[in-house]
Design a protein around this nucleic acid. Structure first.
Lengths: 173, 173
DNA sequence: GAAATATGTCAATATGGCTGACGTAAAAGG
DNA sequence: CCTTTTACGTCAGCCATATTGACATATTTC
């Protein structure tokens, strides 16, 4: 049996089973690990964690976000959000204003300080993408985006794309 | 000012700052979230978490792995590993055998049961990659691998590539 | 025989999640 | 107007995963 041409012989119980893609599985794991580690280092100086980062990020991206929308984006419970959000409010990175047409709502806005931190974090992460893309052929960004998008549950894809590229969020809805 | 052609006007303090790549940042976040969620669902029936998954995965991939090597791959402390590993040993998914040349070592092997679970999990995750790649042009796997690899810290890249593609691990070293 | 190595273990702590239950103010619908 | 629904907050307890620091033990190496 020529190992170079056929590196694997199917056993009896696995007639047609395609071999798992260990390469993609493992690379995705390690790539994501390094990706988040950049921000982690910056955050720990301030005493914040990843949870704070995510909240600040999306509030910065969609100023005027409602609590309910934020919960939906993050996919966590309000109890989980609350501790983290409270710290962001207390330390002046985020501020909440009651909705104009619906005063039950608390619309979240980044402060100047919050915008600065959010941008520093995004810049850090962007730099990793830039370094990565500079190692790759010219227009490697497009297939990267396509790949990541295709990895997302089809049912959620619309929500994500409109979050990423769409609707700049109208004033107070 | 034509919004369609020029959607953003640089302010005074940000003359040359490149805009952060929000698209890649957010897509990477959501894609990874969905990626791990597949395995999570299968694991929770057995009462295992992500930590168990990672340990089982790498033990299955490199049968005979030493504790120290595993710690290095996972990037966690031995105390963190221990509880999780103990559960995998107790429930018969992994077994430990003393090293032949060095009896201090505990070499980790997956049991038949462990191999089956590891494969089920890898198959699940592979199916997501397959679905994703099937949405994309023919050889989209290559740029995806290149992109993920480029995202990993250069200092760690050799370690990762040899883990992913290299050395099938010699018997007892 | 001493030192370095591979591993285990006890204890305390942080973080980021969860469920369940209950409270309150404002809006919406009859 | 009154009831119900909605948007949110809060208390309490629990779980999983990680951390640091200290100490113990067996084995190998020098």
């Amino acid at each position: 049996m020529d190992q170079a041409l056929q590196s694997r012989v199917p056993g009896r119980d696995e007639a047609q089973a395609p071999a798992p893609m260990f390469d993609l599985i493992e690379l995705f794991f390690f790539a994501y690990r390094d990706f988040v580690s950049d921000a982690d280092r910056l955050l720990e100086d301030i005493g914040f964690g990843r949870a704070h980062h995510r909240v600040l990020h999306f509030v910065n991206r969609q100023p005027g976000l409602m609590i309910a929308e934020l919960l939906d984006i993050l996919g966590i419970t309000k109890q989980s959000l609350n501790r983290v959000l409270k710290e962001l409010l207390d330390t002046g990175y985020v501020e909440a204003r009651p909705g104009v047409t619906d005063r039950r709502q608390r619309l979240l806005f980044p402060t100047a300080k919050g915008r600065r931190l959010a941008m520093d974090l995004s810049d850090l992460q962007s730099r990793r993408f830039e370094r990565a893309l500079s190692d790759l052929p010219k227009d490697a960004k497009v297939p990267a985006i396509d790949f990541l998008l295709a990895m997302i549950d089809p049912a959620q894809r619309d929500k994500v794309t409109s979050l990423v590229w769409g609707k700049p969020r109208e004033e107070t809805k």
